Computed example of a mutant assay.
Amino acid sequence: MTELFKEVMVWRRLDAVSAVRYTCLQDLHNDKFALQSADFFRLPLTPASAHNVAAQFVELFIETSPTERCSWFDDAIVNHDQEFPSA
Rank of each mutant, 00 (worst) to 15 (best):
M1T: 10
M1V: 10
M1A: 13
M1Q: 09
T2E: 12
E3P: 00
E3W: 03
K6F: 00
K6H: 00
K6Q: 03
K6S: 02
K6A: 02
K6M: 00
V8M: 04
V8A: 01
M9N: 15
M9C: 14
M9H: 15
M9P: 11
V10N: 04
W11Y: 08
W11A: 08
W11D: 06
R12E: 09
L14M: 10
L14A: 03
D15K: 04
A16N: 12
V17K: 14
V17R: 14
S18Q: 13
S18D: 11
S18Y: 10
A19P: 00
Y22I: 04
Y22D: 05
Y22K: 04
Y22A: 07
T23N: 10
Q26P: 08
Q26K: 15
Q26C: 14
L28F: 01
H29E: 09
H29I: 05
H29M: 05
N30D: 13
N30A: 02
N30I: 06
F33P: 05
A34Q: 07
A34Y: 08
L35C: 13
Q36G: 04
Q36V: 11
Q36T: 08
S37C: 12
A38D: 06
A38L: 08
D39K: 09
D39R: 11
D39A: 12
F40S: 12
R42G: 07
R42M: 14
L43R: 15
L43D: 14
P44G: 05
L45W: 07
L45Y: 07
T46A: 02
A48T: 03
A48L: 06
A48Y: 07
S49F: 00
H51Y: 13
H51Q: 15
N52E: 14
N52Y: 12
N52I: 09
V53R: 08
V53E: 03
A54Y: 09
A54Q: 12
Q56Y: 02
F57D: 01
F57Q: 02
E59M: 11
E59F: 09
L60W: 09
F61R: 06
E63G: 00
T64G: 02
T64Q: 13
T64I: 14
T64M: 10
S65A: 02
P66Y: 03
P66W: 04
P66Q: 04
P66L: 03
R69F: 05
R69H: 07
W72L: 05
W72P: 01
F73H: 15
F73E: 05
D75Y: 04
A76R: 06
A76Q: 06
A76L: 03
I77C: 00
N79L: 00
N79C: 02
H80T: 05
F84G: 05
F84K: 14
F84W: 14
F84Y: 15
P85R: 08
